[in-house]
Design a binder for these strands. Sequence first.
DNA 1: TTGTAAGCGTTATCAA
DNA 2: TTGATAACGCTTACAA
Lengths: 359, 359
Amino acid sequence: MVSKAERETHDRDTNLPPGCGALVRMTRATIKDVSRIAGVSIKTVSRVLNKERYVSEDMRKKVEEAVARLNYHPSLAARTLAGRRSFQIGLVHDNPNPYYIFNMQAGVGLRCREANFRMIIQPCDIASPGLVDDIGALIDQAQLDGIIMTPPVTDVGTALAELFRRKIPVVRVQPGTDLTATSAVYIDNVQAADDMTAHLVSLGHRRIGLVTGHANYFASGQRLTGYRQALQRAGIGFDAALVHPGQFDFRSGIAAAKALLALPEPPTAIFASSDEMAAGVLTAAHRMGISVPDQLSVAGFDDTDLAQVVWPALTTIRQPIRDLGYAAADLLLEFGETIERRQLPHELIVRGSTAAPKG
Amino acid sequence: MVSKAERETHDRDTNLPPGCGALVRMTRATIKDVSRIAGVSIKTVSRVLNKERYVSEDMRKKVEEAVARLNYHPSLAARTLAGRRSFQIGLVHDNPNPYYIFNMQAGVGLRCREANFRMIIQPCDIASPGLVDDIGALIDQAQLDGIIMTPPVTDVGTALAELFRRKIPVVRVQPGTDLTATSAVYIDNVQAADDMTAHLVSLGHRRIGLVTGHANYFASGQRLTGYRQALQRAGIGFDAALVHPGQFDFRSGIAAAKALLALPEPPTAIFASSDEMAAGVLTAAHRMGISVPDQLSVAGFDDTDLAQVVWPALTTIRQPIRDLGYAAADLLLEFGETIERRQLPHELIVRGSTAAPKG
DNA sequence: TTGTAAGCGTTATCAA
DNA sequence: TTGATAACGCTTACAA
């Protein structure tokens, strides 16, 4: 381990603004150093670094050796300033779901790594009046090469307009409005909810409760649509009493289940539009002495892989969040401003807990 | 010759009809534009932007007006290239826990926002031979002003040495080794585990099982220490059979609980070193027909706020992950290389589910 | 295929 | 308190 004595405290510039005065950098190898060591011109080094054509094997070798020897890494700041690209893309989100964000970041991050790009995370607040300015400032300051947005930011018209004005490549994940206005990646939410509802119907359920999602998310409405669609196809009449609003979170799942299970004619299955709400449904059922899955089947959207941790296991629609992130970054890096759409498959995961209705 | 920027500024100033702008290539306002509009020198604009001293009110006003009018945002790339700082710090982690990472990012991000800094997320793999190079490359390329590390990266000696070599300010969250080598933020894990164990003892439990955490994390050992410490103080002999290894995740919690509850003399309470494992303990107990909390009390560390979603509620030690992140960024921005340590309080949250042992 | 020179938009230095 | 000018490390256009 390195001793404390080896560490130097460096000068502090008293002129710096408060709050960040303590941070100062040191020098590193530059392209000039590399060119000198390799005995070639700066431009040749640049060519090798950027994998341009028309570089002889001889030169490339020399440069690569020098790069390795100096442990040289080009300055992103300089490349950004001089070139047309910043090698950075932004991920803008307003989503309180750690699992969603984590997996989205993992997917986007993976693709960025492959392309030697950097990902800038920008959490934001769609209710804030400064939203558009914040996004604009981010793009300006960092000179972003592109933007990825996740719901519900995807559907904020003013933000979208600002991005169009700046002519910056945009990829939206699961957009709800202006579907063809930008590149997009998505799963078919309607079909997914239809699949799950049809699955429950196939087990014999006729009274299927639905807990809808947060009103800010178009996915909520899409899932309701799929639910209705499957019911209709099965010849089951739509009963508005069986649809209860939720907000994607645990508490609202409890509340919704309580209400649904207290109906004169309670449902034999409840389909929650998120897994946190599904966990809430389980909790409510337990508190009411209703056993799952004997007396009640519970299904949900597996937004967050929570089903792994919740007892009893749920039957869920799995969304490939990480893959969505990867695909979004891929669209951005491969196609830029060209509008491209990519649909990813969802997955119906049937666990042992779903059962036919009793009685 | 009129520059593109000047033309663009001119167009804006002369209030061109909408539509004409589409033909003009979008260019951002520069510091030069601001200085021209404000009628001052570039350096004066720079002074205002950096809140340096020796700027008259008069000048400041003029500059601020021009900045607002042009919606000017300084180029980070240019600032980084010309100045000593990049206004960027890195957050390096190798942690598969979405909640932890999400909250850590939220805390660090909040403090960064306040200081107008940007946070670069760098996931990594502590088992990878390229770890040190990856971190080095990140610092070089982005010219980071500082680094925040979370466990278990905090305790990788080679990575630490590399950071020292580069003389870059480092703050570690909950480090396990070389505690005084860098700035650090942490909670007292030993005391936290002691608190929980003492709590269970105070309820009358004498046989308390412990599920330890992943071996990569020093916190695992610290929590074991606190457990032993509290037992010893209470005059309860340490029984190695009651300590079962886990890995912080759900599955290992199930396995550990199964083993512990199958003992000839099973524990009346199980203390899991993470909440995911505590959820696993609950699941195992249920599968074995052991009722919680009547026959078994379950406690855990609330690493991930999962207790909110798990029924029945657990008694937990709450760690302020978000606050740890905020504090880490604060240390970095305020003190830089000066070594500073900050301990945050943990919280014992007693929920209704913990009970005295039966029989 | 390689090299030269002119920026990119800021901050640092030094002079006024 | 202000301003002119030289860096900063790279890419781009153009020349050889």
